[in-house]
Nucleic acid binder design. Structure first.
Ligand SMILES: [Mn+2]
Ligand SMILES: [Mn+2]
Ligand SMILES: [Zn+2]
Ligand SMILES: [Zn+2]
Lengths: 135, 135
DNA sequence: CAAGAAGATTAGAACTATTCTAATCCTTGC
DNA sequence: GCAAGGATTAGAATAGTTCTAATCTTCTTG
C-alpha cells in the first residue's frame, strides 16, 4: 500500500492548480474516502467544520476549477442547484426527488441500445441516465 | 377532421384551470402546432408578441400550474434554468450544450436494459435519458 | 343580468444560487 | 527574503424564480 496515500498538494499541482490551503482543505474533504456528491453549500459547511476558514466564493471558484480540470463532474438534476460529483468515470444516477439525494450506479450492467444519431453538425459529448425515484 | 379543432378554454377547464385570457393566450402559443420546449423568458417574449399583455409572474404561475395539471413536463438539463416541454409522453432528449437547444427523440426505439432496482423504500418515478452533444 | 365571492393577474419586492469586483493576502521562483 | 503573479475574500451584483398584497376577472347564484 506504499505510495497509495493521497498527496493532495501533488494532485492539485498535477491538475495545474496551486495547492493553496483552501484548495487542499477542499480536496481533502472531497477526495479522501469514497465518492461524494456535494453542493457548494454542503461542501462549504463541511470544510468550515474542519476549522479551516474558506469563503463561499472560494468554494464556488474551486468547484468550477476542479470541474474544469477534470477532478469533478457537474450533475444537474433539480432546478436551482448544481451537484458536483467526485466520481468522474462512466456511471449514472438515482435521484431521490423527496430529499434531493443522489446515488451512483455503475454503467457497466446498463445497456442503452437504439439511440438515434446526433443532430447534423453535432458530436456526442455524454449520455446521462437519471433514474428518478420517490419515497 | 371535425371536432379536431383545439378549444383551449375547454382544455383548460378539463385540466381544472379557469380559462382566463392570459392562460388561453399561453395555451395557444404552447399547444397549437407541434411540440415545444420553452423557458419562462422565451414564452413570455412569444406571448407578448401576440399583443396580449401577460406579466412574467403569470407566465411562471401558468407554467407551474400547467405542469402540475399534467399539460406540461419540466426538464432540467442545464444549471440555472428550467425548460417546459409540451410533449408529456415517453421520450428522451438531445441537448445541444452550445446553444441550449433541446430536441426530442422517441423512446420507442431506445432500449435500456439492466437498470438496478431502486434504493430500499423508493418507487420509480421516471427515467430520463439526456444525450448531450456539442457543435 | 347584478352582485358577490372566489380565484387570477400584476408590479414590484424578496429570495436563492451563483458570479463578479477590487482590495488584500499567499505561494512560488529566484 | 522578495518580488510578481495568482488566490482569497467580503460584499455587491446578477439571473432565475417566487412571494406579497392590491387590483381585476371570472363564475355562481338569485
Ligand atoms: Mn458553473
Ligand atoms: Mn417550479
Ligand atoms: Zn455520481
Ligand atoms: Zn421533449
Amino acid at each position: 500500500m506504499a505510495g497509495n496515500t493521497p498527496d493532495f498538494p501533488d494532485r492539485l499541482r498535477a491538475a495545474g492548480l496551486r495547492p493553496t490551503r483552501q484548495r487542499v482543505a477542499l480536496a481533502r474533504v472531497l477526495f479522501e474516502g469514497g465518492h461524494r456528491h456535494v453542493t457548494a453549500e454542503s461542501l462549504h459547511a463541511e470544510v468550515k467544520a474542519t476549522r479551516m476558514p474558506v469563503s463561499l466564493a472560494t468554494v464556488y471558484n474551486s468547484l468550477n476549477q476542479f470541474r474544469d480540470a477534470g477532478l469533478l463532474r457537474e450533475v444537474v438534476v433539480a432546478p436551482g442547484r448544481s451537484y458536483f460529483d467526485t466520481n468522474t468515470g462512466h456511471h449514472h444516477h438515482f435521484f431521490v426527488e423527496n430529499d434531493g439525494e443522489l446515488h451512483d450506479f455503475p454503467s457497466e450492467k446498463v445497456t442503452i441500445a437504439g439511440l438515434p444519431t446526433p443532430p447534423k453538425g453535432t458530436r456526442l459529448s455524454r449520455v446521462d441516465v437519471i433514474v428518478r425515484v420517490r419515497r
